[in-house]
Nucleic acid binder design. Structure first.
Length: 559
RNA sequence: UCCCCGAUGGUGUAAUGGUAACACACCGGUUUUUGGUGCCGUUAUUCCAGGUUCGAGUCCUGGUCGGGGAACCA
């Protein structure tokens, strides 16, 4: 009745094809107008940015239409799954900003029901126990374009199948000795419809059901039925399951259960990134990165540690859209999403990464002033703070050069610059070591140029960040670059060959504003003129904070 | 060989038979006590061939190219 209510919600983003389908379903009264989605991770690894897109799609669409989303762990293969992954997944999803009303679903909760479904199939003559080996079954499968051949066990009676399936369940069959197969069509053009295996024997302890079961359902026999049991209306998944949809529907029809509907969309790919759990695991195992949450990893935990905000990831997911064509998103869009978010929220502070001495010769030696610094020019409510200024300062080595052209706005012989929130200073001279590295720069300041009460009339082109030497705190800073030097790391053979050897640069002896010694985990900072940074909770030690660079500032300087 | 899906600027996404648009990237200008932000602007797009139609990115046919498809994985 409220067909205009969704229109009243302002939403500049164009509707994607799934949204359009849902709208059509609602207006046609399908599923009683309900929208109920699910996110079904297998707890066998950490979630990555690709999963974040899937989460935003399934949770986001349900939320948009006033529906619900079930978090369901698809735990039908106990060999690969564990509680550790369950917990990590829950943490990542709730950090992303989605909740599941305290209800957690597990496919393993339906093992009994699924077993009964299998029995029902047997009694309808639609499933049979096959005694052949995996190799024999594979050999009979045929090939695309060539039909397979029927198993000799395909004609067993329902009674015999029931008895044998019961024995499988009772643990009287060895692993690999027998499987239960759906009886569909060995000549079907879709290979998945050629009598797929639906139950196999595994004498493996399950992280939730323990030793209760020795037979476990295959994905195709578990997923659609679980959707159906939960009365999921829109089961959204990635393109790789398109070929599974006929099977998904076949089981629902054969079992005559709630008709959940599967719709597929393209998964996220990012350039300069790999997105496969198996390959990410290899990076961890071979020590290329320090763990799943290494700030260079595209995992949600890695992005979090890197300093990505949940908001920026949600915005990114919205920006990339949902469609069926394979895509490769430019990482710059992810980076833009972060900058756009943090520009509004991050606290501006000053930090000098590669410090050299800056001495203000005409500033009294014993004098110290507190300067008023704006915390965030994008947000007046963020207020101001006081920072100490004195005769001896630290400045960025990169901000001084001896030989310069007219495009150089920073300090150099003969040049004048503004020290942010402080005074305008003029070059006097500089000192070098034996290797010719500049170690110290001497300047004079203009006393009437104090920030906020400048009457000097001097308009320097450049503004430099700085830290007062006396009160500066020591910090370590980690600069990250993309993990791979190739846009498509997997394109030319082994992705390990495409690794960027300079993806991590550790800077020690950095000088930061006093307030940063009290930096809290999860606070977003902008180090003025340098980029966005956040405290690394793993490497920081009392008295020696470690900051991760989340993303640099956009650098418009072409010099 | 067969089946399924897809093809719109550099990268993505819209346009649902009626002016091909938006974002990011790029380039240029402007503002600026961050070479950031903001603001303004430039460049650049419908895979090919037929057909239907007054009119096709959209519908039909054929082709080309790309992705997926045989696990007791999900």
């Amino acid at each position: 009745m409220s067909d205009t209510s969704s229109e009243s919600v302002p939403d500049a983003r164009p509707a994607n094809f799934i949204e359009q389908k849902i709208k059509a379903d609602i207006s046609s009264g399908k599923h009683g107008g309900r929208v109920h989605t699910r996110f079904p991770p297998e707890p066998n690894g950490y979630l990555h940015i690709g999963h974040a897109k899937a989460i935003c799609v399934s949770f986001g669409l349900a939320k948009q239409f006033g529906g619900k989303t079930n978090l369901r762990f698809d735990d039908t293969n106990p060999e690969k799954e564990s509680l550790e992954y369950v917990n990590a997944i829950k943490k990542d999803i709730s950090w992303l900003g989605f909740d599941w009303d305290g209800d957690e679903f597990y496919t393993s909760d339906y093992f009994e029901q699924l077993y009964n479904y299998a029995c029902k199939l047997i009694s309808k003559g639609l499933a049979y126990v096959d005694d052949q080996t995996a190799e024999q079954i594979a050999a009979q499968k045929g090939a695309p374009g060539t039909p397979g051949v029927n198993s000799a066990y395909r004609t067993r009676s329902a009674e015999e199948n029931q008895k044998l399936f019961g024995e499988m369940k009772a643990g009287r069959c060895k692993e690999g000795e027998r499987v239960l197969r759906a009886k569909i069509d060995m000549g079907h053009v879709n290979m998945l419809m050629r009598d797929p295996v639906i139950y196999r024997v595994k004498f493996v302890n399950h992280h939730r059901t323990g030793e209760d079961w020795v037979i476990y359902p295959m994905y195709d026999f578990a997923h659609g039925q679980s959707d159906s049991i939960e009365r999921i209306t829109h089961s959204l998944c990635s393109l790789e399951f398109e070929n599974h949809r006929p099977l998904y529907n076949w089981f629902i029809r054969a079992l005559d259960i709630y008709p959940s509907e599967q719709t597929e969309f393209a998964r996220l790919n990012l350039n300069y990134t790999i997105m496969s759990k198996r390959k990410l695991l290899r990076l961890v195992e071979e020590g290329v990165v320090d763990d799943w949450d290494d700030p260079r990893m595209p995992t949600i935990s890695g992005l979090r540690r890197r300093g990505y905000s949940a908001e920026s990831i949600r915005v990114f997911s919205n920006l990339i859209g949902v469609a069926k064509r394979n895509n490769t998103i430019d990482v710059s869009l992810l980076e833009w999403s972060l900058r756009d978010d943090l520009n509004r929220r991050a606290l501006r502070v000053m930090a000098v990464l590669n410090p050299i001495r800056l001495v203000v010769l005409n500033y009294p030696e014993e004098k110290m002033e507190m300067m008023k610094a704006v915390n965030n020019p994008e947000d007046e409510a963020a207020g101001t703070r006081e920072i100490p200024f004195g005769r001896e300062l630290w400045m960025e080595a990169d901000d001084f050069r001896v030989d310069v052209n007219k495009k150089w706005f920073r300090l150099a012989p003969g040049r004048t610059v503004r020290l942010k929130f402080a005074y305008i200073v003029q070059y006097v001279n500089h000192l070098q070591d034996e290797q010719g590295n500049v170690t110290e720069v001497h300047v004079n300041y203009l006393p009437n140029s104090r920030s906020g009460q400048d009457t000097s009339g001097v308009k320097p082109k450049g503004t430099l960040h700085w830290v007062a030497a006396d009160s500066a705190k020591e910090a370590e800073v980690r600069l990250y670059d993309r993990l791979f030097k190739e846009a498509a790391p997997e394109a030319k053979g082994d992705f390990m060959d495409a690794l960027n050897p300079n993806s991590l640069k550790i800077l020690q002896g950095c000088k930061v504003e006093p307030c940063l010694s009290k930096a809290a985990e999860g606070t977003y900072f902008q180090f003025t003129r340098l980029g966005y940074f956040t405290l690394d909770p793993k490497h920081s030690k009392p008295g020696l904070p470690v900051f991760n660079r989340s993303v640099s500032l956009k650098d418009g300087w072409k010099g």
